[in-house]
Computed example of a mutant assay.
Amino acid sequence: MNHSRSSVLSWVLALLALLAAFILVDVLATVFFAITVAYLLIPLRRRLEARGLSHWASSAVATVFAAVSVVVVLTPLFVIFSLRFSDLFVLASVVPDSLSFELFNMVYEVTVADALGVVFSVLRAVARSVATALPVVLIKLTLFGFLVFSLVLSGDSVGRTLLALVPAEYHDAATALDTRARETLFAIYVLQAATAVGTFLIALVVFWVLGYDFVITLATVAAILQFIPIVGPSFLLAGMALYHVAIGDIVAAALVAVVGGFAIAWLPDILIRPRLAKETADLPGSLYFVGFVGGLLSLGPVGIIAGPLVVALLVETVALLSDELDVEDDDTAVTDTDVESDSSTPER
């Protein structure tokens, strides 16, 4: 009878989860990110509890730690922008009053006034969009904070409940999937930070070789932009290339677009992510890259986390099924076949 009741309640839980996902579709990405962050903060909360903090206090400290980490990442961008704001006006004063170029035997001239009019119209449109979306963003950030705290606070009980729904003979598989998910999430967030650090170091060298001033400032902006999906450091490089075109330095524009695009915008994703994915999450670099790119293109920013996570869980499930079916590796199978063949060959 108890088994029947638990089965019914399990189906009710699954149906309500689907209904909640349908109703809360607009905040589903926020909920997903909160779950992944809380998943990683639970071990920190346990360590704090082991050091004498209460359950509630350790959950609060872990949540604040996550919030402070985000602030630490974003603060340099605002500090650099405020410190270098006056330098932007100096650079703008260098731009000529008009820019002429020839295309298909037709000469076109763009004045600074026309360009500024377009820029200001775009900025006004962006400002209106930001002002409209700001209340929603603040609500989602508040929801994110409450969700992380509540999940860290009650994560153990939720985990035990979900594990209890799994038949006892499958507990080892559930534990393996749980371990793989935690390791993958840790690797994803560590990879993001490591890629940003690698971008900073590469950008530092590239901007110095190309002869730019304020190389630390430019490298820091490139590293922080690495946290923004799709755009990344390409936004900075495109702006620099356009500036060089505006002042008539086509060679510098080509260099920053080609060399910077390869070394700063493309190389870290190819060189750092796959290698660290293999070391930290035991996930082949090619599979991580497929999950990262596929998730990003399919789901947007949430796909950065969901894509590699699903691929990692798929790999772990294949490994569990392989162990269950006692499937041998190719090398072992060939060796065993050779041994059997040798032993069945009659001696002459």
Score class of each variant (00 low, 15 high):
L9P: 12
S10C: 13
L13S: 11
L18Q: 13
V25P: 00
V25R: 15
V27T: 02
V27D: 00
A29T: 02
F33P: 00
V37G: 00
P43L: 15
R45M: 07
L53F: 05
W56P: 05
A60G: 12
F65N: 09
F65G: 09
V70Y: 04
S86P: 00
S86K: 15
L88H: 12
L91F: 06
D97H: 04
F104K: 10
N105I: 02
M106G: 04
Y108P: 09
Y108V: 07
V110D: 01
L116P: 01
F120W: 06
F120T: 09
S121W: 10
A125L: 10
R128C: 03
R128Y: 11
R128W: 15
A133I: 00
K140N: 00
T142V: 12
V152T: 05
D156S: 07
R160S: 02
T161I: 12
L162S: 06
Y170T: 06
D172M: 14
A174H: 14
T175A: 15
T179N: 14
R182Q: 11
F186V: 06
I188G: 01
I188W: 01
Q192K: 12
T195P: 02
A196G: 10
L204N: 05
F207I: 08
W208I: 10
W208Q: 11
D213S: 14
V221D: 14
S234V: 08
S234P: 12
F235I: 14
L236P: 05
L242Q: 04
Y243K: 11
I247Y: 01
I250K: 03
A252E: 06
V258P: 04
V258F: 07
F262H: 14
A265G: 14
R273G: 03
A277W: 07
K278L: 08
K278T: 08
L283K: 01
L287V: 04
F292W: 15
V302T: 00
G303C: 04
A306C: 01
G307D: 03
P308I: 11
L313I: 15
L314K: 04
E316M: 09
E324Q: 07
L325I: 04
A333Q: 02
